[in-house]
Nucleic acid binder design. Structure first.
Length: 242
DNA sequence: GCGACAG
DNA sequence: ATCTTGTCGC
């Protein structure tokens, strides 16, 4: 796992530890590098990844990255990354709070999934660069944003049937979809992160969904994240920044 | 100014 | 996200 060098030339050496002003500049730089072109070869996708972040009493954030086989959804790899949660949570700047831990977890992944799922927005963001897009461009990954709640935009509630969806618009443009992954259950908000199209993101979000509201990658990552935290995993595969 | 506001 | 138990319903 390495940084997308062209991007890093612009935002090294501290991609996440920045001021709001610098964060805005970085987001602008990353946004222009987002690709919404679908390049995945569906038949060759046999591995998908998911990342979720939880917070520890210690003030650290812990990111859990999981790799699942596709379409079996068997757990193939788990990596953990911890870092001080120094940047505060500010809607529109989540990447800067969770980025450090995510970078740690991603850097330890050995098996490379063809597609990554993030718990947050992709391009459905005030400046078009949500968590999935931000990390996607930074690490040159194909990514999709899977959010449990909308951040921006307008949409009509999709029909209460499993698989139903409606477009999510923001400033005249479609930036994602409100998707009903289960009958009579609240929808999730799907938007492309990087190197994938709107339709591709929608299709893969549904293909990666099993019997639960959330797609398997982020669902499993979240489940493990909560489990590891509860068991006080201050040891294990995860180390610390600094 | 008021309300909204991923995790 | 996090603080927190049981409980109603598909």
């Amino acid at each position: 796992m390495r940084y997308n060098s062209p991007v890093m030339e612009k935002i090294l050496p501290f991609p996440f530890r920045v001021s709001i002003e610098e964060a805005l500049t970085i987001q602008k730089e990353l946004e222009r590098r987002i690709s919404l072109h679908y390049t995945l070869e569906d038949a060759s996708v046999n591995c998908i990844g998911g990342i979720d972040v939880s917070y520890l009493k210690s003030g650290f954030s812990m990111a859990v990255a999981v790799v699942l086989s596709f379409p079996e959804f068997q757990l193939l790899e788990v990596q953990v990354g911890k870092a001080p949660a120094s940047f505060p949570y500010i809607p529109g700047f989540l990447s800067f709070r969770e980025g450090p831990a995510i970078e740690k977890a991603l850097s330890r992944i050995k098996k490379e999934p063809q597609l990554w799922f993030f718990d947050g927005q992709g391009i459905a963001h005030p400046r078009g660069v949500g968590l999935a897009s931000h990390i996607g461009v930074l690490f040159d990954l194909v990514s999709i944003g899977i959010a449990k709640k909308p951040l921006i935009g307008e949409f009509e509630p999709p029909p209460p049937e499993k698989g139903a969806y409606s477009p999510l618009y923001y400033q005249e443009k479609q930036v994602g979809f409100a998707v009903r992954t289960r009958k009579n259950v609240k929808p999730i908000y799907v938007s492309p992160g990087h190197k994938i199209s709107l339709e591709g993101a929608l299709r893969w979000a549904l293909k990666a969904t099993g019997r639960y509201r959330l797609p398997e990658p982020t669902r499993i990552a979240h489940q493990l994240s909560q489990k590891l935290k509860k068991e006080g995993q201050d040891l294990g595969p995860g180390n610390t920044v600094f």
